[in-house]
Design a protein around this nucleic acid. Sequence first.
DNA 1: GAGTGGTCTAGACCACTGT
DNA 2: CAGTGGTCTAGACCACTCT
Lengths: 244, 244
Amino acid sequence: MNTSDESAAFRPLYQQIKEMIVARITSGEWSAGKSLPSEAEFARHYNVSPGTVRKAVGEMVAENLVERFRGRGTFVKSQTDEREHSHFFHVVGQEGKKILPATRGLTCARRKCDPETARRLDVPTGSRLLVAERLRLIQGVPIIFEIIMVSEDRFPGLCDILSEEMPNEMYPLYEELFGIRVIRAEEHLSAVAADEREAEALDVPLGSPLLEIDRIATTFDGDPVELRLSHCNTRNHHYLNVLY
Amino acid sequence: MNTSDESAAFRPLYQQIKEMIVARITSGEWSAGKSLPSEAEFARHYNVSPGTVRKAVGEMVAENLVERFRGRGTFVKSQTDEREHSHFFHVVGQEGKKILPATRGLTCARRKCDPETARRLDVPTGSRLLVAERLRLIQGVPIIFEIIMVSEDRFPGLCDILSEEMPNEMYPLYEELFGIRVIRAEEHLSAVAADEREAEALDVPLGSPLLEIDRIATTFDGDPVELRLSHCNTRNHHYLNVLY
DNA sequence: GAGTGGTCTAGACCACTGT
DNA sequence: CAGTGGTCTAGACCACTCT
């Protein structure tokens, strides 16, 4: 059954099946939370063995794209899932317990994209950029000063929405309103000194050490979606990372 | 996590196979770098289908315990593998390229274990603790000030070895000399101010923001092996974390 | 009861590495 | 060449969910 059109097609069947299904998911054929066709149906449709479909779907499960339940079916995972809410949030309290912070919006402005930001977001220099600043509070105490940058061309009208009310979680918003799912993120962490504005906002002395999290969030395809710069007061909290 | 109480026998065959093989690996039956019996042999030995063994070994591959090569066989992964050398080292340069630093040993001392350290290392309070301090340099420039703490009962004679020459990589040393393999690590990151000693060692002003990495390294079973406190100058480097 | 995914079997053929 | 893992097939039985 292997059609070797160009010499490039020597890839395992299950990977090709997987990519076709992934493409159909990202195209919106099955939206988040909806059930996919059964593995048997896929097998019939693609004219392969059930085991091959199973392996394809298995990889998608491993990549957090779908979820399987015995007796029920396979479902497209959503960023809005309870489990996923804090998937990208690694700041925890002293005991290692993750507490989702509240959010206070500060500003939301438009500006032209500088070359460096343009490069990182993969948009033209000078294109419209949306810059939102917000404060994240844990038990009422401001802990994180955050700057969020997205291309306004990718998120038309987002500025108005944010100006009205700054949501706590951005990624579910991107998914629900614009159909853009954040799947991966790359974070660059470093230590910086609090500037005047941050010192006031976070109620720390000027020059206090803050943990900087410079994050670029991307879709499944690796397209950059959002740049986010977080400055955290790690006096009573820290960033947890588990390696294995 | 799964405490095998009496009803434990209702678990998938492939998981039981996997655990048996893992147990035989950790017992030292096949040491790092050595080839395991073929999947067919395992299948005969455990009297199961080749596919079942395959699934068991597949999980071990996913957990980075072994490596499979078509035509050659399956091999026990070693901490000394080229790939694994920097597995737990996340500090990279501006361009995101990982450069393994050089090491300069500072001190290596014994002291009695305080209650907090004892709790984290799961050893008795007052037991012998080995505390080593070292500096890590990238291109000759000191970047990280590091304090390493291990139980001397677990690593008898290590102090003498470290006093003689401080190695660049600790985990391969643990594995080679003491048969203890570090598989997991949990890192707590925060921002701190450089104290006098660090300021001098890292050549930064007193009070400069440093990235603190508080790491606890554990074996496959979750037993704590080492505590390590690293203070990094993130002026020209940062900590890279990829989430997906 | 019909349908789902989870496990397990027993083979087939292939690509590749060793000799 | 014989042996290895990688893929793929075509079934079997099970536990579970929905209706």
